[in-house]
Design a protein around this nucleic acid. Structure first.
Length: 473
DNA sequence: ATGTAC
C-alpha cells in the first residue's frame, strides 16, 4: 500500500494494481496509527477498484474497518458505474438530528433532568429488537412512511411543518419501491417505527457549551448555556434486513455482470441494471423509514418535555436544527456531473451558497451534526468550498478505536465510570454499556480538528452531554 | 448496526 503525506492532514493512497482512482485520507499524525491497526485503508483501496468509481475514494479522520467500505468512507460512482450495499452500510440512513430549546441548563436541576430522561424512555423504546409503542402506525401508515418519509408523520400530527425543511432531502428520497423489498424486511419494519435501537444509537440531553461563531449559532438557535437534544438512530431492522438481502443478491449480480469483486462486502451491480435499480429502490425505502423514525422520536421527545415542564412543547423551543444522514447513497451533481455518492459513516457538508441547502441556511451552509461517543462532546459544524475532494463530506463522529469485543474485555469499571463523570445515563449495570464506552472511541476533538485545520469544515458549536439514553437489552 | 443463523 502506497500512502504518503501530500499536505497538512491529507494523505494520498496512490493507485496500484486494480485501483481505478487514488484514495485520499484526511487524518492527522495522532490518529493515523489507530487507523493503521485495522484494515480500513486496504478497504479503501479495494473500493477504488470498483467499476465506474470517480474522483477519489475518501477516508475521513474517524475511519475504521467495516463490512465492505470502511466506516468513515466516501465513494462516488459515475452513471454506468456500480452501486454497492456494503458502501452504504447495514444501518441505511443511520443519522442524527438536533433539537434546540429555549431552556437554560442551569435552571434544570438534576432530579428534573433525571425525570426528563425517564419520560423520554417511557415514550421511546430502546434496545435491540424493541417494538414500537405507536401501534396505530402499522399497515397503511407504514406504506406512506416508505414513500413519503418524515412528511407522512408530520401530516398525521407527529411533528411541526418546519421540521421538513430542516431535514436533509426534506426527509424523503424519491425512487422508493416496496416491490424491491422482501416481506421479511417489511414485517420487521412495521413494528419498529419510533424506536431507538442499540449500539451507538442514543438520545442525549446536552448543554451548548461553546459557540465558536455567533452568526451561525444564532441562526441555528444554539446559544451558550441552553439545553439541546440530539437523536442518533437509523432504519432499525428494516434497513438491516434490506442490506442483508441485497448483500447476497448483489454477489450474484456482480458475477452475472462480469464484475471482479475485491471482497464480498463490496458486492455491487451496475446502477442501471435490474439488481442495481432494485437495490436503490429498496435503499430509498429504508432512507425514508429512517427519516420517519427520527421524526417519530422527535415527536415523543417533545411530548416528554411538555409533560415534565408542564407546558406545550412549542413554548420550550424544541425546533429541529437539522437532520443529517450518515449512511446513504445519493445522486448529486459535482463539477457539472451527476454521480452516485456513497457515504458510509460520513456526513454531507454543503458549503455556503450551495443550492441544495435549505433556504434558511443558504448563507451559512446547513448544520453538520457530528456526535461524539457517549460521555464526550458533540459538534455542530458547517461545510466549506474546500471539501470538493470529498464531494462535500465530513466525518460522522469520533469513530471506534476498539472493537466491541475488546472494549468489553479490556475496559475496567473505574475507567468507565471516570469517563462518564457528570453525565447521567440509563443503566445501573455499567457492563452493558462497556462496548460504547468513551475510551473505545477516538478523541472527537482530534477528529474534528483534523478537518478544521485543513479548512474543510468550520466549528460552530460544541455540545456536552448532561444525560444520555442508550439502547440496552 | 442487527430478533448476532441459511
Amino acid at each position: 500500500m502506497d500512502l504518503f503525506k501530500e499536505s497538512l492532514n491529507r494523505y494520498r493512497l496512490r493507485r496500484t494494481g486494480e485501483m481505478q482512482v487514488d484514495g485520499l485520507v484526511f487524518i492527522n499524525e495522532h490518529l493515523l496509527p489507530l487507523v493503521k491497526r485495522d484494515k480500513s485503508l486496504e478497504q479503501l483501496c479495494a473500493a477504488a477498484s470498483l467499476p465506474g468509481v470517480v474522483g477519489h475514494v475518501c477516508g475521513m479522520p474517524d475511519i475504521h474497518e467495516g463490512f465492505g467500505l470502511p466506516i468513515g468512507g466516501v465513494m462516488a460512482t459515475a452513471e454506468g458505474g456500480v452501486i454497492s450495499a456494503g458502501a452504504v452500510g447495514m444501518d441505511i440512513n443511520c443519522g442524527v438530528r438536533l433539537l434546540n430549546t429555549n431552556i437554560q441548563a442551569k435552571e434544570v436541576p438534576i432530579p428534573v433532568l433525571r425525570k426528563l430522561l425517564q419520560k423520554i424512555e417511557e415514550y421511546v423504546p430502546t434496545g435491540i429488537g424493541k417494538k414500537s409503542k405507536h401501534r396505530d402506525m402499522d399497515g397503511k401508515i407504514f406504506e406512506s412512511v416508505i414513500y413519503q418519509g418524515a412528511g407522512s408523520l408530520i401530516e398525521r400530527g407527529c411533528g411541526w411543518s418546519d421540521d421538513l425543511k430542516n431535514t436533509e432531502e426534506k426527509g424523503f428520497l424519491s425512487g422508493a419501491s416496496l416491490e424491491a423489498v422482501s416481506r421479511k424486511a417489511c414485517e420487521r419494519g412495521k413494528e419498529q417505527l419510533g424506536t431507538l435501537g442499540g449500539g451507538n444509537h442514543f438520545i442525549e440531553v446536552q448543554i451548548v457549551e461553546e459557540v465558536y461563531s455567533r452568526v451561525e449559532g444564532d441562526l441555528f438557535g444554539l446559544l451558550p448555556g441552553m439545553l439541546a437534544v440530539m437523536i442518533h438512530t437509523g432504519s432499525r431492522g428494516f434497513g438491516h434486513q434490506i442490506c442483508t438481502d441485497y448483500s447476497r443478491s448483489l454477489l450474484g449480480a456482480a458475477k452475472r455482470h462480469g464484475i471482479d469483486l475485491p471482497n464480498r462486502g463490496l458486492a455491487c451491480a451496475p446502477v442501471d441494471s435490474k439488481e442495481g435499480r432494485d437495490y436503490y429502490a429498496a435503499m430509498a425505502c429504508a432512507v425514508n423509514y429512517a427519516f420517519a423514525n427520527r421524526q417519530m422520536i422527535t415527536h415523543d421527545v417533545r411530548r416528554a418535555f411538555g409533560d415534565v415542564f408542564g407546558c406545550p412543547p412549542e413554548t420550550l423551543g424544541l425546533k429541529l436544527v437539522y437532520d443529517v444522514a450518515h449512511n446513504i447513497a445519493k445522486w448529486e451533481k459535482h463539477n457539472g456531473k451527476k454521480i452516485l455518492v456513497h457515504r458510509k459513516g460520513a456526513t454531507r457538508a454543503l458549503p455556503p451558497g450551495h443550492p441544495q441547502n435549505p433556504p434558511s441556511y443558504i448563507e451559512t451552509g446547513h448544520p453538520v451534526l457530528v456526535p461524539g461517543s457517549m460521555g464526550t462532546a458533540s459538534y455542530v459544524l458547517t461545510g466549506t468550498e474546500k471539501a470538493t475532494e470529498s464531494f462535500y463530506s465530513a466525518n460522522h463522529g469520533a469513530g471506534r478505536k476498539m472493537s466491541r469485543k475488546s472494549a468489553i474485555k479490556e475496559i475496567s469499571r473505574d475507567q468507565f465510570e471516570s469517563s462518564m463523570m457528570g453525565v447521567l445515563y440509563n443503566s445501573r449495570n455499567y457492563k452493558e454499556l462497556l462496548d460504547e464506552a468513551p475510551v473505545a472511541y477516538k478523541d472527537i476533538d482530534q477528529v474534528v480538528e483534523t478537518l478544521v485545520a485543513i479548512g474543510m469544515v468550520r466549528k460552530i458549536a460544541r455540545l456536552r452531554p448532561l444525560g444520555v439514553i442508550k439502547g440496552k437489552d
